[in-house]
Simulated scan of single mutants.
Amino acid sequence: MKKELWRQLIHASGVFIVVLSYFLPPQLLIILCVTILAFVVIVFRLDHQHHIPFFSTILRVAKRDEDERGFVYFFIGIIITLYIFQFNMAIANAAILILLFGDSASTLIGRRFGRIKLPFQSHKTLEGSLTFLGVGFLVSLTQLPLIPAFIGALAGTLTEAYSPIDDNVPIPLISALAITVVIYFLI
């Protein structure tokens, strides 16, 4: 569990992207994310043959044995979300925060306290999903009004629970899409 805690803290540290969005234009944020992704891919590949001070230690502490590409999908989800939803950075930021904190919290709580399995999903729990919904809702409230924040968190929760692909890509995209529909078409 300690390894997973470190992994999720690193996952949540992506909050710097949201913070930087108040100072940088979306295009520059996208370039920054692509640059970080390229850097991490290079470090990851080099780490297989060489010990890289600081970075190798982080990779050994936080990397899941069965998942070597999660960080790639993580950045791809954020990059695509920034690109598509840059017309309203509150939507993009809320969706990114839902990914960062909702997904991290649900993993930690679901693995530690999860007992009730979700229907049609043997490795996800009700406790983890409810945590995702609550945390996702709270963090999205920092960017959005009540109803769009809740709908975005709910969409992210369902996506995390039932996505057939790595959830780091669809969570922010589906959350942002649901928020957009609520803000521009329903309210």
Results as ranks from 00 to 15, higher is better:
Ile98Asn: 09
Ser104Thr: 04
Arg64Thr: 00
Arg111Ile: 03
Ala62Ile: 13
Thr142Tyr: 12
Leu144Ala: 09
Thr142Gln: 13
Ala90Ile: 00
Ala62Leu: 07
Ser106Asn: 04
Ile96Val: 08
Met89Val: 03
Gly102Leu: 02
Ser122Met: 09
Val135Tyr: 08
Val135Thr: 01
Ile42His: 13
Val61His: 09
Leu100Thr: 04
Gly70Tyr: 03
Leu59Met: 13
Ser129Asn: 13
Phe113Met: 15
Asn88Asp: 15
Leu146Lys: 06
Asn88Val: 05
Leu97Ser: 08
Leu97Asn: 06
Gly70Gln: 04
Val61Asp: 11
Val41Arg: 09
Leu141Ala: 04
Val43Ile: 14
Phe85Gln: 09
Leu141Trp: 05
Val43Gly: 08
Ser106Lys: 04
Phe54Cys: 07
Leu144Pro: 00
Phe87His: 11
Arg45Ala: 14
Ile96Pro: 07
Pro119Gln: 04
His51Lys: 10
Val40Asn: 11
Ile116Trp: 10
Lys63Phe: 02
Ala38Leu: 15
Asp65Leu: 13
Ala105His: 02
Val139Cys: 03
Gln49His: 11
Asp67Met: 04
Leu144Cys: 03
Phe137His: 04
Leu108Glu: 09
Phe44Gly: 10
Glu68Ser: 14
Ala38Trp: 08
Glu127Arg: 05
Arg64Ile: 01
Glu68Met: 11
Val41Ala: 15
Val135Trp: 03
Arg64Asp: 05
Val61Thr: 12
Pro119Val: 09
Lys124Ser: 05
Thr81Val: 08
Val139Trp: 01
His123Pro: 00
Leu46Gln: 14
Arg69Met: 10
Gln121Asp: 02
Pro145Asn: 12
Arg111Asp: 06
Asn93Asp: 09
Ile80Cys: 12
Thr131Tyr: 07
Lys117Pro: 01
Ala62Gly: 05
Leu108Lys: 02
Ile147Cys: 08
Ser56Cys: 06
Gly128Ser: 09
Phe132Trp: 01
Leu133Asp: 00
Gly136Ser: 05
Leu118Ser: 04
His51Ala: 08
Gly114Cys: 10
Arg115Phe: 08
Phe120Gln: 09
Gly128Arg: 06
Ile80Phe: 15
Gly70Ile: 03
Leu100Tyr: 01
Tyr83Arg: 06
Phe132Leu: 05
